[in-house]
Computed example of a mutant assay.
Amino acid sequence: MNRITRLILGVVLTGPLAAAPADVSADLAKFTRDGKVPALVAAAVLNGRIIATGATGVRKSGDKTAVTVGDKFHIGSCTKSMTGSLAAMLVADGKIKWSTTVEEIFPKMKIHEDFKKATLLQLCSNTGGVPGDMPPELWKKTVEDRDKSETSQRANLVRALLTSPPAYPPGSKNVYSNGGFTIAGAMLEKVGGMTYQELIRTRLFKPLKMDSAGFGATATSDKVDQPYGHILREGEPFPIPAGLDADNPPAITPAGRVHLSIVDFAKYANFHLGVADNPPLKADSLKFLHTIVPPSENYAVGWVVVQRPWAGGTALNHNGTNTMNFAVMWLAPDKKFAAVAACNIDSDLGSKACDDAVSFLIGKFLTSGN
C-alpha cells in the first residue's frame, strides 16, 4: 500500500447550467491491456468542475457486467490524506493540536518511553517512529481480530505498537507506515467522541456530498453488484470473493480502506485544490496539509509533494492499493486541475493503467490547451 511516486476528473461540482463532462471511456479502453486490467475508471477536474469522466471494462473477470462511473472503487492509501484532512478539522476546532502527543491522548496506556512524545503531526506524516512493516505476529493477530468491532481491533493494534520500542526516534526519519496513520486515527476518535468512520462521514464525506464513500471491499457476496478486487494468477486476473479476505483488516481503516465512485474521488481532489463550495477546511489549513514535514524531502500530511512542469510547479499526489485494487490522484493546485484514476486489480499492469489514464487526462485537458 506504499507505492507513492506514480503518476482523474469532470462532473459538474457547482452550478446546474455548466457543461456536462466529456466521456473518455473509449480512450481508457486502450489502457486495460486487453482485459488483463478488468476495469478502469478515471476523471479530471478543472476550475471547480469535473470536465471528464470515463469507465471501461467489467466488474468481475469472467462476468460481462460492465462498470460505470458510479461504481465504487477501493482507493487504498489515498485514504491517508483524508485522515490528515480530518485531523486538520479537529485541530481547527481546538479539540487537538498537531503537537499533541500519544502520551497526552492515551494517559493510561503503558507506552514505551521512546514513543511517548510522538505527535499527531509526526504520525500523519510518516515521521512518528512507527515501523514501515507491521511485525508479522502483530499483523497475524490483527487479521485474526477481524470479527471484533473496528474500534476494538484498532485499540489492540495501537496498544501493541505503542508499547513496543519505536523503529527510530520520532521525528528523526520518514518511514512510510500504515501503523502511524492507524494510531493517528485512534487519537482522533478519542478527542472527536466518535468512531473514525462516523467522524469522516460527518466531517468530510457529507459536506463534500461524497454519497458513495464507504469502507472496505465493495461487492456483495454472491453478487456482481460492484467491482471485485483481483490478483494475477498464472498471468490472468483472478477475482477475490467478497468477504473478509477481500480487504485489509478494519483496524487500519485510517491508513487505507475507503472506497468511492470516481466522481466522488474527483470531488475530494477538487476540495484539496481549494475551489470547493462550502469547504470543510479553510485555505490556510489546506496549505499546511500540503507542506512537507521535515525530515522528509517530499512527504506532507498524507501527500507526496513534487515539482512537475505540467503542474506549473508544485504537484500533489498519492496512490493506494490493498493488493487487489489500485488508485492514484495527481493535483496541480496552481492550475486548479486534478486527475484521478482507479482499477480493480493491483499489479504492475493495474498501476500502469492508472498512470496511463492520468497521463492521458493531463495531456488532453491541461497541457494540450484543449
Rank of each mutant, 00 (worst) to 15 (best):
D247P: 06
G94Q: 09
L232G: 02
G363C: 10
A283V: 14
L188D: 10
C343N: 01
S351G: 14
K141E: 15
G62A: 04
N319E: 04
W98P: 03
D247N: 15
A18C: 10
I96G: 06
T14Q: 13
L316A: 11
M109K: 13
L46Q: 10
A327W: 03
P169C: 06
K148M: 09
G312M: 02
F365Y: 15
D222K: 15
V328M: 05
L188E: 12
K282A: 14
V158C: 09
A219R: 03
M329V: 07
A246S: 05
R3T: 15
L331P: 00
P227A: 09
A160M: 09
S164E: 07
I183F: 05
T101A: 07
K140G: 09
K64W: 05
F31T: 03
Y299H: 08
T202S: 15
F238M: 14
A19D: 14
E113N: 12
L188V: 08
M187V: 09
L260S: 07
K364P: 02
D114Y: 05
G243Y: 12
A44W: 00
T253P: 04
G129A: 12
L138R: 03
I96Q: 10
L199P: 05
A341N: 02
D277L: 14
F326I: 01
L361F: 04
V143Q: 07
T253Q: 10
D71A: 01
T5F: 13
K64V: 13
S351K: 11
V305T: 12
D222H: 13
R33I: 03
T100N: 09
G185N: 10
P309L: 07
A266N: 00
G369R: 01
K117M: 13
E104H: 10
A167N: 12
P280K: 04
S61D: 10
T182I: 05
G363W: 09
P136V: 14
P294V: 06
D346I: 04
M187G: 06
L244C: 06
S125Y: 03
A42D: 00
P131F: 12
L361M: 13
K141R: 15
I75N: 00
K352E: 15
L120P: 06
E234N: 15
G84L: 01
T291Y: 08
A87T: 09
S347M: 06
L232W: 00
R3E: 12
A219T: 11
A315K: 08
L121K: 14
W98V: 07
Y299K: 07
K148Y: 04
A118Y: 01
D356Y: 02
K30N: 05
G132N: 06
L361G: 01
K287Y: 08
T119V: 14
G320C: 08
D27G: 08
D225H: 11
L273A: 02
G84R: 06
F360N: 00
D346W: 01
G214N: 12
P294H: 05
D145F: 06
T253M: 11
D355S: 15
T65C: 09
V143G: 04
